[in-house]
């Protein structure tokens, strides 16, 4: 188990290193000099040079990469080209909208998909199964931001159960924050739940055909007991993979959904930064997103080992 964790940890570090290198390189290709962009066309050469030194732009590429990564590790993300404020502060404020939204949606998606998948698998070929499968077929096809617009139309504008947009902030209390994120989370979660439910169902159906399920029946377990005691945990193994993959979709999705609900999250920040060519902000936000995805996949790897004893001993 320890070996397995160490191995996954090593692969996590390599992934992060390579990802940071890729992001840095791409941003380096970007045409234009941030310093002249910040100071405008009429800037004096001396001021320009001073700013370049201040921003660390005249160092070599390797030095700049190392100082950027070093900064990331110590929480110093650099200074925004447009706002002249530390990027870390800008991101920190927005992060607490986007990440909770993605996790909230992941939770909802799992809570909806599991019962739906199990229900459908247990009633394979019957009306209940066909109903769930039809609904998921539709759910998979719905773009989440469009679904979000429809939710706003129904629940905010017509029923007035939720605010149509904006975010009250966590300082108004945990439940107020959760309430504000509920519609966006539902919009994000339902399409993903549809996928997850389908995976859960087919994974369970695969497991139902396994020999050990028949062995369990031969012991005198009922179909239901067999499903719960032997089927579920085995079916979970492929489902975990999908949950890990879904987190990256949910995080990306939350950036899009923020546009529908005017949420002050990473999405707004990054789109503003793109139009202002504030590349250092773009760079840091992208790194943060990729970092979160890699961490979640690491957690999924650990969950694998918890579910499957064969992984623990093999490693």
């Amino acid at each position: 188990m320890v070996r397995y964790m160490l191995k996954r940890l090593a692969s996590l570090c390599i992934s992060l290193a390579v990802a940071s290198l890729v992001i840095f390189t791409v941003i380096e290709i970007a045409p234009g000099d941030p310093a002249s962009f910040m100071l405008g066309i009429n800037a004096q050469p001396e001021t320009l040079a001073a700013l370049r030194t201040e921003l660390g732009l005249d160092a070599s590429k390797v030095e700049r990469y190392l100082s950027w990564v070093g900064g990331l590790l110590t929480g110093d993300f650099g200074i925004s080209y447009t706002y002249r404020t530390p990027v870390a502060g800008m991101i920190a404020a927005r992060m607490w909208v986007s990440l909770p939204l993605a996790f909230y949606a992941l939770l909802l998606s799992t809570l909806i998909a599991f019962p739906a998948g199990v229900f459908a698998a247990a009633r394979r070929g019957k009306v209940g199964d066909m109903g769930v499968m039809g609904a998921t077929q539709l759910g998979v096809a719905v773009p989440n931001f469009w679904f979000a617009m429809m939710l706003v139309l129904v629940f905010s504008i017509n029923l007035r159960w939720f605010a149509a947009g904006g975010f009250v902030g966590w300082d108004k209390g945990f439940w107020a924050g959760v309430h504000a994120l509920t519609l966006p989370a539902i919009a994000l979660a339902l399409p993903q739940a549809a996928i997850l439910a389908r995976v859960m169902r087919s994974s369970l159906l695969d497991v139902l055909g396994e020999d050990y399920m028949r062995t369990a029946r031969a012991k005198g377990l009922t179909t239901r007991q067999t499903l719960w005691r032997h089927g579920l945990r085995n079916a979970l193994i492929p489902v975990l993979t999908i949950i890990g993959l879904q987190f990256s979709f949910l995080l990306a999705g939350s950036i899009i959904i923020e546009q529908v609900f005017y949420l002050p999250g990473l999405g707004r920040l990054v789109f503003q930064a793109i139009s202002a060519r504030d590349l250092i902000v773009v760079e840091s936000v992208v790194m943060l997103l990729v970092f979160s995805v890699i961490i979640v996949n690491f957690l999924v790897d650990l969950a694998y080992a918890a579910v499957d004893p064969r992984l623990r001993s093999r490693a």
Binding site: S15, A19, F249, L251, A252, L289, V293, I294
Partner: peptide, 8 residues
């Protein structure tokens, strides 16, 4: 690694 970069 590419899976960690959603298309967005």
């Amino acid at each position: 690694l590419v899976f960690a970069f959603p298309s967005l």
